[in-house]
């Protein structure tokens, strides 16, 4: 009998093992919901699967009676545009500052300490300041995401750039490269796949800050809707919304991973490109 560390599941076993925790979670929910509903048919806490499907249909397919909009799409569009703006701005900052700090001693000397302090500020604690400075509109929500995610991206990219072997930078100089050319031909192309990893890791935090900002001050968005429905204990809609957000987040993560493998085939060969 080989040791447990050396025993590997076959193909079928792997599929079953992967599905098992999902099945258990759904099964536990179904049982819990059944018990509560048989005691009190009006229980709101664990709605039945049909109730969940109804709730989802009401928000995702039928237009809202008051506005005529399909609320799930309106909310999704609002949230995703905030998320995209926040991530795009953070990525740009992460690239510019990260490459500067990682490659240029002068920028590092001036920025490294500041960044270390900046990234220790709890982003939610500055949310009131953001609302005061940027108003209650879209900008303050985007800025919260930037505040929460950009310091991490800047520091991570700086670290990744610093990890490039010094030989590569010296070699580029012997090939005649200027500082700018070192950035465009040696550093930047090798940062892209690492940036994708960093963005994947920061997406969770970005969602957190997005939903927090929407919960506090907004008229649309997935986070706004969940917190609004909380007042009515409308679990039949909240749960599908949470599932929808999870699906979106999972899809982005999956897409980024595949983009990395497709666009940067050399990166997997580096031995560092495992997800």
């Amino acid at each position: 009998m080989p040791r447990f560390v050396n025993r590997r599941p076959g193909r079928a076993a792997r599929v079953i093992l992967a599905a098992l925790p999902f099945a258990l979670a759904i099964g536990a929910y179904a049982i819990g919901s059944h018990i509560r509903l048989s005691e009190n048919p009006n229980d709101k806490l664990l709605p039945s699967f049909t109730a969940l499907a109804d709730g989802f249909t009401r928000f995702a397919i039928e237009p809202d009676r008051r506005t005529g909009d399909i609320l799930l799409w309106v909310d999704t569009l609002a949230s995703l545009s905030r998320l995209a703006a926040g991530i795009a701005l953070s990525t740009l900052l992460g690239l510019v500052v990260g490459i500067g700090v990682g490659l240029l001693p002068y920028v590092r000397a001036s920025m490294a300490g500041f960044l270390a302090v900046l990234s220790m500020i709890p982003p939610l604690s500055v949310l009131p300041i953001l609302f005061i400075v940027f108003g209650l509109g879209e900008l303050s929500k985007v800025m919260l995401i930037v505040f929460g995610v950009a310091p991490f991206l800047m520091r991570d990219i700086a670290l990744r750039v610093g990890e490039l072997p010094a030989e590569q930078i010296v070699k580029a100089q012997t090939l005649g490269a200027s500082t700018w050319q070192i950035i465009t031909r040696v550093v930047l192309p090798q940062v892209w796949p690492r940036l994708i990893d960093a963005v994947r890791l920061s997406l969770g935090a970005a969602w957190l800050f997005l939903i927090a900002a929407e919960a506090i001050a907004s008229e649309s968005g997935l986070g706004y809707r969940i917190f609004l429905l909380r007042r009515y204990l409308a679990m039949d809609v909240i749960l599908p919304y949470v599932a929808w957000i999870t699906l979106l987040a999972f899809t982005f993560d999956w897409a980024l991973r595949h983009l990395q493998a497709r666009a940067f085939p050399w990166f997997a060969g580096e031995g560092r490109g495992r997800s």
């Binding site: 030989e167 590569q168 070699k171 090798q190 990166f267 060969g269």
Partner: peptide, 8 residues
Amino acid sequence: KYSVYPHL
């Protein structure tokens, strides 16, 4: 080591 560029 590291004389050539892995991304090219």
